[in-house]
Simulated scan of single mutants.
Amino acid sequence: MNYMPGTASLIEDIDKKHLVLLRDGRTLIGFLRSIDQFANLVLHQTVERIHVGKKYGDIPRGIFVVRGENVVLLGEIDLEKESDTPLQQVSIEEILEEQRVEQQTKLENEKLKVQALKDRGLSIPRADTLDEY
């Protein structure tokens, strides 16, 4: 096999099923149809997979174009082992509700931490004010 540098080495992965982890934390699963030198991707029959605990749900997204700078991880899915998972698939509505509850819990825990620090005379700068320095 000839060595191909960079994204050219992914040419043989075209038309195979891949998992893509995005910079914002979303997970996409679809068939890789195109890739360029900037790692821009075109995925076909894409689903957005949401994980909460040991449950997951898939939201159909169709054709998905991903700008290369947003790709954190790209990996081929072994079709033989794909269904061999300890996770339980649930409906879209159920996983979205579980995700909402999980995010609400995280927000409440964060507020408790901020209050505990405030009670001790400490504070954490807010992310939106960090650019001012």
Rank of each mutant, 00 (worst) to 15 (best):
L28C: 05
G6L: 06
E48P: 02
I124W: 02
N2Q: 09
Q103P: 01
L32A: 04
V72A: 04
E102N: 13
L32Y: 08
Y56R: 02
R67F: 10
L21G: 07
G57W: 00
P5N: 09
I11D: 08
E80N: 13
P125V: 06
P125E: 07
P125H: 04
E132I: 13
R120C: 11
H51E: 12
Q45V: 00
I11A: 14
F38P: 05
Q104E: 15
D119G: 08
L21C: 07
Q88H: 03
R49A: 05
F38I: 08
E97H: 11
D128K: 12
A8R: 11
L32D: 04
R61P: 07
Q115N: 13
R33L: 05
Q115F: 12
L122F: 15
D128M: 09
G68N: 10
A116R: 00
P60N: 07
E102H: 12
V47M: 08
L73E: 12
T27R: 08
F31A: 08
G25T: 04
L122Q: 11
R120V: 00
E102I: 00
S9H: 09
E93V: 14
D128R: 11
N109R: 14
V114D: 12
G30H: 00
R26H: 04
Q37P: 04
Y56C: 00
V52Y: 05
L122H: 14
Y3D: 03
L74M: 14
N40H: 06
D15P: 04
E93Y: 10
T129C: 08
G6T: 05
L43I: 09
T27W: 01
K55P: 00
D15R: 04
K55Y: 03
D13A: 06
I14G: 01
S34T: 01
L43F: 04
E98F: 15
D13G: 03
Y56E: 06
L28P: 00
G6S: 08
G30D: 02
V20M: 05
P86N: 01
K55C: 05
T105C: 09
V101R: 09
H18N: 04
V101G: 00
E132L: 15
L117I: 05
D24S: 05
D84P: 04
F38R: 15
P86D: 01
L79M: 12
I63L: 15
L41A: 02
K111N: 10
D15V: 01
P60Q: 08
G75P: 01
E108C: 00
V71Q: 09
E80C: 06
S83V: 06
L22C: 06
E82K: 15
D58G: 10
R120S: 13
K111V: 10
E80V: 13
K111I: 13
E132V: 10
Q89N: 07
R61D: 07
I50A: 03
G53S: 07
